[in-house]
Design a protein around this nucleic acid. Structure first.
Ligand SMILES: [Zn+2]
Ligand SMILES: [Zn+2]
Ligand SMILES: [Zn+2]
Ligand SMILES: [Zn+2]
Lengths: 136, 136
DNA sequence: CTTGACCCTAGACTTAACTCCAGGGATAGG
DNA sequence: CCTATCCCTGGAGTTAAGTCTAGGGTCAAG
């Protein structure tokens, strides 16, 4: 029903420090405190932490997750379009990274395939040559 | 034939600070110094900086580039296999990132496509629902 | 001789998302 | 009461690859 920070963290597979860090970033507020000052979390908080972690696994930064949470908290008065826009920005972001990594992969594969990988001296290694070429 | 740091940097499209930073990281040593203490670079240095930048554009970190340079400097006594190994480690690294980004892209595309993106309240927004779901 | 463009150093700052530390308090069990 | 285990705070440290700042020196032209 309600738990301390250690249990919450281990239930979500994150460290205690991470939970406190999210609190400092205003992503996750404890449901209350004990007399002794210990944070207590309800299962609502558990669900909120899972929300954050799922968003993270989709590539959203903590700052972006804050925006998502702002929309979610006020769902009734926020349009779908605002949520979708955040998702589309992130998608484009991911696509750019994919393109760039794909370019790197192609280029690196090409010069790596051309390298014999043998034990003789690398005096004519295609990889070093490609990096050291005169032109460009 | 020989130039100062500003010319070298602008020829390669990087900042002066970057050149000095590479020097601190032992990637690029000036060919000499003027009496007044100015760094001077030969066209060999220019070529070395281009080597570094090409390697960077293939995804190598500065630390990895140092290893590549170590091999290149001693090309005659280093086997192709050592060079190829570095390239293959980097390729695998890139492939892992591609896989992870691809996973994110698929997941995010799926929940984004399901969102209407309209102006009505996001009370049943598929994106927020996917992030906030009960299970998992 | 002065101006402006260029260069020097050492060291601090940036970003993101934690992670760790010191020094101490809370709580439960025996 | 003692101990173990948990928790608290504030602040510093981590990583990569720069970027910026302060305070000053160099050099060529006019
Ligand atoms: Zn070979
Ligand atoms: Zn080779
Ligand atoms: Zn909708
Ligand atoms: Zn929606």
């Amino acid at each position: 029903m309600s738990m301390q920070i250690g249990e919450l963290a281990s239930k979500c597979g994150v460290r205690i420090d991470t939970v406190r860090y999210y609190e400092k970033q205003k992503l996750l507020v404890p449901s209350g405190r004990t007399e002794g000052g210990y944070r207590i979390y309800s299962k609502v908080a558990l669900r909120e932490l899972r929300f954050i972690l799922r968003a993270k696994s989709l590539g959203f930064t903590l700052k972006e997750i804050q925006e998502l949470l702002t929309l979610k908290i006020d769902r009734e008065n926020q349009p779908c379009s605002s949520v979708k826009e955040l998702a589309e920005v992130k998608l484009k972001d991911i696509e750019e990274k994919l393109t760039e990594l794909g370019r790197m992969h192609n280029a690196l594969t090409a010069i790596t395939d051309a390298c014999c990988g043998g034990e003789e001296p690398a005096t004519a290694c295609s990889i070093l040559d490609a990096l050291d070429k005169e032109d460009s």
